[in-house]
Design a binder for these strands. Structure first.
Lengths: 191, 191
DNA sequence: TACGTTAGCCAACAAGCGTTGACCAACAGT
DNA sequence: ACTGTTGGTCAACGCTTGTTGGCTAACGTA
């Protein structure tokens, strides 16, 4: 286990951070293959070999750059009938202020390791929510999968493919439309 | 305009076809960047230079390999309240028997040209449907965008990321869940 | 049979990639 | 002041990629 505490402050922390920031940006914009270590290093204004020193190889860099916590809000606090809308709003929020998710979405599609990582994140963080609110806990994986399909589809259309209508919709409109969908996927007895 | 008729039969048609088939498979499986011309040529059992001769360059090959017609069914024939389910069923059908769509989805995410092509396909073929059935024709692009987000999200989860729950759902179950969603996006007066 | 056209292979190119190791400069502890 | 450690650059490596041009052989006519 890598403890989050007890991290001895190093003189190179600034550089490490610059590399990570540049990596996130490049991975999000270009995907795994087209985001080159050389370009990331250039953005961070250091030599490509530093990236290797600090993160081992390209895969290690991506792993470090894509460490993310969805930080799903505590849904025990919200009314059961507001779960859908709350989830959609939260995801819109996260996606907009943190390009890591866009990066993961891009990478998850070309890189098998990325796909597994994305799958893991949604499984670990969305599934418990589904398990708590859906009528039949045994059906929770299905419900979570359906929610993921709508939420990922929204992100795909909006942040990756940039379909104009999906970009034009305001966050509120988007939540108005998608909220009931997710709500239904989670809490409806049957389709 | 490239007419579909009047194509003079060439001696190399078999090879051209083999290249195209191999290209579709590779693009679908690996995405644009990781699908190499050399690998495609190897699959088609010919020399890489033949690919160049017949399709100019990699981009041209992809353009040829991703020429697709969604062949949306004539929705004027189906009852207005069945449009959603019909659409979902049709897309599931197309996606399952033709890997071109998976290829385009993969490529649209890493390659800007691919994104534009995918956007064009959905705009040209899904938008007219929306325009016909949605209450306010001016809102048709929004509605089409919402539908695209759910349909693409389903395809993403099922055929690209291969989320187990999304894979496990039968076509019928999927249509049962997604049909009403698409129906609502298309025909609801307001969210 | 002669000959232009077509189909195909082979070998090579330049460029870009991830990655490595040698080397220098600044720091920290004694 | 000396020395080991850390932060950083430089130049190169081996490899793969898309792409090109020249060559051979088969074909289709006349």
């Amino acid at each position: 286990m890598t403890e989050t505490a007890a991290a001895p402050p190093r003189r190179s922390d600034a550089t490490r951070g610059a590399i990570l920031a540049a990596a996130r940006e490049r991975f999000a914009a270009d995907g795994y293959e087209r985001a080159t270590i050389r370009a990331i290093a250039r953005d961070a204004r250091i030599d490509p070999s530093m990236v290797m020193r600090y993160y081992g190889n390209k895969e290690g860099l991506f792993a470090a750059a894509s460490a993310i916590d969805l930080r799903l809000p505590d849904l025990t606090a919200v009314a059961r009938e507001d779960v859908g809308r709350t989830l959609v709003t939260h995801f819109l929020d996260v996606w907009e202020k943190d390009e890591v998710l866009t990066a993961m979405l891009r990478v998850g599609i070309t890189n098998p390791a990325g796909a597994e990582r994305m799958q893991g994140i949604f499984r670990d963080q969305l599934l418990p929510v589904a398990r708590r609110v859906c009528p039949d806990p045994a059906a929770a994986p299905q419900r979570a999968g359906l929610c993921a399909s709508q939420i990922l589809g929204m992100a795909l259309a909006r942040y990756v493919l940039r379909f104009p209508p999906a970009v034009a919709l305001s966050d509120k409109e988007m939540a108005d439309w998608l909220g009931p969908t997710v709500q239904r996927y989670l809490t409806a007895e049957r389709p």
